[in-house]
Amino acid sequence: MVKLKVKNVNFNYASVPILKDVCIELDRSEMLGVVGPNGAGKSTLLRCIDRILSPQEGCILLDGRDIKDMHLMDLAKKMAYIPQSATHVFPATVFDTVLMGRRPHVGWRSSEEDLEKVLDTLQMMHIEDLAMRDINEVSGGQQQKIFIACALAQEPDVLLLDEPTSNLDIRHQLEVLDIIKYIVVERGISAIMAIHDLNLAARYADRILMMNGGHIYAAGVPSSVLTPENINHAYGVEVEVINHNGRLYVLPLRPVVKR
């Protein structure tokens, strides 16, 4: 059954159209990569899906229910959104930060069970050694892992990630995406990640959505979307797509000279 359905969504910022007639269907245990040049509407799309922004037209259905009709807390139990690097974060221990992910599930007091779940998540992300450190004292890569841990403690069915690897070195990039992929498969959740790195998108996403100027320009399995023609059209960059040991690699050659 379709987990998440985005139907004909249009979104304008002060009458400037950002999203134009976007339609997506997402299954359980599926990881969707959203790629596209800067300003293509990737982040706006994720924000609309999590009701942080309200689209002027169209609707988003989670398990067949319009998210507009859902209580905010109920939506938060099912969907988690991790913004692109958080701006200024209040000082808090890593443990407390991850504990915040339990907010939709509990009232005022955090129970023993919540503490256990925080510990599980910390261990899964291999950041248990940071538990009592302050979030502002750890590296950018570790912070990113902490925010993902917080979202995982939320136990969502749908995980929305905006550039989860933007602050990370290549080792952390692979570690973080491996964990997300593992959770998607293991817990049967769905994930949508906006990502700039086409090679990571090709490697981890089951399907790829290429956006350009608020439209969905191409969608499908990585090999059908990440073609030199599509990339040339959307990004204006000449590339070579290499198949190495069954994996796609996008090798940028040069920007296309605009006529």
Binding site: R47, D50, R51, I52, H71, L72, M73, D74, L75, A76, K77, M79, A80, Y81, I82, P83, A86, T87, H88, V89, F90, A92, T97, M100, G101, R103, P104, F147, C150, A151, Q154, L160
Partner: peptide, 12 residues
């Protein structure tokens, strides 16, 4: 404290 967007996503 974790930012407005994250707070919204947590149902606040």
């Amino acid at each position: 404290g974790a930012g407005d967007e994250r707070a919204k996503s947590l149902g606040v």
